[in-house]
Each structure stands twice: as C-alpha cells, then as structure tokens.
Design a binder for these strands. Sequence first.
DNA 1: GTCCCACTGTGTATTATTGCACATTGTTTG
DNA 2: CAAACAATGTGCAATAATACACAGTGGGAC
Lengths: 298, 298
Amino acid sequence: MYDWNDLRFFLELSRRGRLISAARKLHVDHTTVSRRIAALEDELNARLFDKSPRGYKLTDAGLRLLPFAEQMEAQSNQLYQQISGKDARLSGTVRLAAPEALGAHIIAHNMGQFREMHPDIELELVAESRRTSLSKREADIAITLARPSTGRVIAWKLCDYRLKLYGAEKYLESHPKISNIEGLVGHDFISYIDDLIQMPELRFLDQVIKDPHVVFRSTNVMAQYNATLDSIGLSLVHCFMADQDPRLIPVLPEDIFIDREYWLVVHEDLRHVARVDAVCRFLTQTLKDYHNRMMGHI
Amino acid sequence: MYDWNDLRFFLELSRRGRLISAARKLHVDHTTVSRRIAALEDELNARLFDKSPRGYKLTDAGLRLLPFAEQMEAQSNQLYQQISGKDARLSGTVRLAAPEALGAHIIAHNMGQFREMHPDIELELVAESRRTSLSKREADIAITLARPSTGRVIAWKLCDYRLKLYGAEKYLESHPKISNIEGLVGHDFISYIDDLIQMPELRFLDQVIKDPHVVFRSTNVMAQYNATLDSIGLSLVHCFMADQDPRLIPVLPEDIFIDREYWLVVHEDLRHVARVDAVCRFLTQTLKDYHNRMMGHI
DNA sequence: GTCCCACTGTGTATTATTGCACATTGTTTG
DNA sequence: CAAACAATGTGCAATAATACACAGTGGGAC
C-alpha cells in the first residue's frame, strides 16, 4: 500500500506548484518532495502532475485525487486537535477570487486583522472581475455578484452594497450644475468596456441614464476611479470606496443609486477544510461589520 | 506533525489487540508496531492503549481517535481504488456479534460464499446471546432480536424468522400422543435458563404453555438442540435449523409457532467503512435469499 | 545573443527506521 | 510448583529515506 504521508507532499505541491516551495512549507528538501511524488505516482499507477521546469500542475487524475487527500487532511487535523488538546494551527494556502473593488479595498485593508487571527494561513487574493472556476481549483473561494446557479458549490450571501454617482470637485465646478436626473444629459461619463463585461450585474450605468456619453472606458475599477478623480467625467463608484475620499462628491445621492449583492461561493469538497472554513468565517464576519459602509450610510 | 502511517498501525492494533497479530497483518515486525504506537502516543501526548503482557486495549482517548482514523482509512481506500483503477481489495477484520442460532448455522454455513466474494476480509463471528456494546467496539456489527432504541447506531430489519415446537421421533413414540395444545400438559420441555436470559425476546416457551415442565435448561442453543435429539423433551427450535433435520418432528405446527425478527445494527461511525459495509450487504442479501427457510416454508 | 536566476534532477553521504536476535514477563498446563 | 509457551521490550545491525552538493535546463532580463 502507498505511504499515507506521500499525500501530504501531494497536497502541498498541488497548492504551491513548485517543488522548492512545497518543500519549504513542509521543512524538507525539494528532492524529498520530488521522490515522494514519484513514489506515489508509481504506487497509484497514475500521473498526478504535469511537470515542467516552471512548476508542477495537477492532471485530471490529480484533480480527482485532491478531494480525498483533503478529506484525510481534515480528519487528521481534527484528530490531532481533539486528541492532543493542542490547536492544530490552521495553515496552508487559500486562494480567494474576489471582485476587484472589494478585494483590493475592503479585504486588502483587513489583512492585518486576518493575519493576527491566522498567522499560518496564506491568503492569496485574485482580485479580478472575471469568472473563476472552483471545480478546476482556479480558486478555493470566490466572491461573486450573484448566487451561482449550478455546480457542486455552497453559497451564501455576504452582504449588499451600493454604488452612487460621483464626480470630482474640479469636474463639477467646470460643468453645468446638476439638479435633477435630466440634468445629466450632456455630461461625460466613465464606465466599463461593454463587450468585455463578463457579469451582467456590472451593467448599471444604463439604469441611470439612457445613451450616456462615455469618454473613458476600462475593465479596471481603479483606473475608472482615478480617472474620475482626474475630473474627466462622472462615474458610478462603490460607496465603500468613494465615501472615504473627500475628493469625490456624490451627485444626486437621494435619487441615483444602484444596489448589488456579494455572494461567497465554495466548492462542496472544500467546505470543511479547516483553513478554507477559517477564511469564510473571517469574510462573513468582516462584511457583517462593514454593513453600513457597504450601503453608503455614514 | 505526526506520521500518518502510524494511524495504520493504530488501527490494526486496535482491531487485533496484540502487537504480534497486528504486525503479522501489516507484514512488519512486532517491534515496529510497538515503536510506531509509542511514537504516535508521544506526538499526540496521549495514551491510546492500556498495555499488558496479554495485549493492548484501547483507552478512552484511543476510542475517541478511532473514528477519525477509520475515516481516513475509508478515504484512503476510496482514493486508491478510484485513482489506480485497481479494486483496493477489501481487507481487514470485521467482528460480527450474532445470536448463536443464526450465527452458528446460517451465517457459518455461508462463509464459503462470503470468502469467495471477499477473500481478504476476516469475519469474526461472536455467536452469543448476550448483549454486545457497539460503542465500546465489542463488535463492529451486531445482529439483534429487536431494534435498538438508543445510541449512535444505524439499524435495519434483516428478516423475520419462526420457531416451532419439535420433538425427536423416539420421544414422540414413547410419550402420550399430542393432538391439541392441551395435550402438552404432562410433557417434558427443554428451555433456556430463565434468570440468565438477557433478551426478553428469548422468553417464548411461556407463550406456548403455562408452567411448562422443563427437564433441561441451557444457555446454549446447540445444547438445547442436541438434547431434543436425545429425546429428553420437546423444545422450541428455529425452523431454519430443525426443518433441515428429519430427526425432528414438528408438533402441532399449524397452531404453535413463534415469530421473531433479526435486526442488523452498526455503529454510526462504521457505517461507511468499506469492509463493514461489505459484510452488511452480504448479510442483508443472504437473509433475503433465505426468507422462506427462515419462516419454515418448505 | 549572452548571462543570470530559479527550479528540477542525480549521485552520494548521513540519518532514521526497521528487522533480527535475544532477554524478560506473565499465563497456562502438566 | 516447574516447565513450556506466548507476548512484549531492548540493543544492535541492516536497510531505507532524507539531506547535501552539484549538474542540467529553461526562461527572463539586459
């Protein structure tokens, strides 16, 4: 029978992609990891990784093995904690895919607190506005704008958030005063690139004004934000970003606002993996604490 | 972190109770098992076994560890089968506690078929009519006469069975002819030892005749059976035993019969352990095939 | 195009684990 | 009560696993 310990080498290599990185985490030599993976592949008569000088990537067989190994690891951690009495320190890497605005601002700004709570968990933040596949392990956790409708995932709503229309002071001073929604006609706007929008929930400028005159488009939220600061136009910005910045003035805030939701999504197989669970709990609690800010209530 | 392989030594020792027996099963030296258990106890800072020259017995900590280790073993077996393509031959020991009659006859007579199906599973049959505790691992599977009402167990009904009153030809020839139930008065009977009966379901002679004249008592079903053959009295015998023996004549079979049930009981934690599951399936199917015989329908 | 860096693979020395031989202990049998 | 048997524990040799040193390869930067 194969060596159960080899599964620990397998797990770490699958998470880190490189022998030397996995070896460092496990406090062994990279040659040991290489040999143990080779031994495991030999015992199981299956190729678990596609190897290249640039790293190791899981094959289909490796992907199929992964949930079992993770379950064993979860059991191992539970038994260690329960029998030895010592808290088996949560450790390992968790990859989180989150919308750029949320990830780069709210989550990134809470990393200090997270690391205090879980010093051995390495949180990798993929802050992009494109879809990620959890079943292909592109991420362990995803934060989406809508509840996923298919796949072996578990999801729950994290929070609501609000966007409002903002303009820089310099822009507002040098353009016609806006006293009602009709007054927006003739103004310039900043927005996403329509045909590169991957989530319908990001199409919200059309709800504010018909046929907006867009002078700048970007897929990058930070680029849009900075362009707004640069006084080239108005844009719909997340309240949790803009309200912290006195340079941005909300435009008709009582009339113009878009509400959206954030959802936390985890693959079913990872739900009970301790470090994934720890990250989920942290995110859930953090965004509960941020409720008012997310909604633009100051 | 502790060596995951040590858990395999732990599992085998917990099942077999002796270093040398566990070592034989694992194809290692008994000193290896001894040292690996010592290493595991040291790592977990817990005593897992009470040691004596006569063997090793699980402590409370060991009992608490057991389900986790078994889960890991279940995961390991599943992944091996699924990834390597090879059927990880079901192996290991399963201890079955069954009522003596059922165990020693029906089950024992089907061991050939069972071993053909599962050559690496060692089925240990504890054929006794006393209660066994599944939570203390006195057995992995129990067959009982009634559905258990408490405990973290899973149970389902295996089958119904029937007992009838039988007498040996020699006894019947040398005693008053029995043409109705009233005619039983004055006859001799063989039965259990009343104050040593541990299950109310075994008290059935009282249902047939009030104040029976019992000339021989035993806790052992086979002893009762052989005494009946020896023509010292009448006894209520399981149809699945007696109907195969032309030496036993049923007495008033249309009027006198007792119906009982067999239940299969497994501890919740073992339900998904592959070899336990295999035994459960085998028993369930076997007793389904034996339905007519169990009920005395020839 | 060349050099540097990061990473993997291989051979060998070192260290850890396991098996062997045997002593010790407790139980059973005569 | 003594001898035999079964099981565990210990010391040391043999074997296996791991670390170390270094070669080879591929990609990126200049």
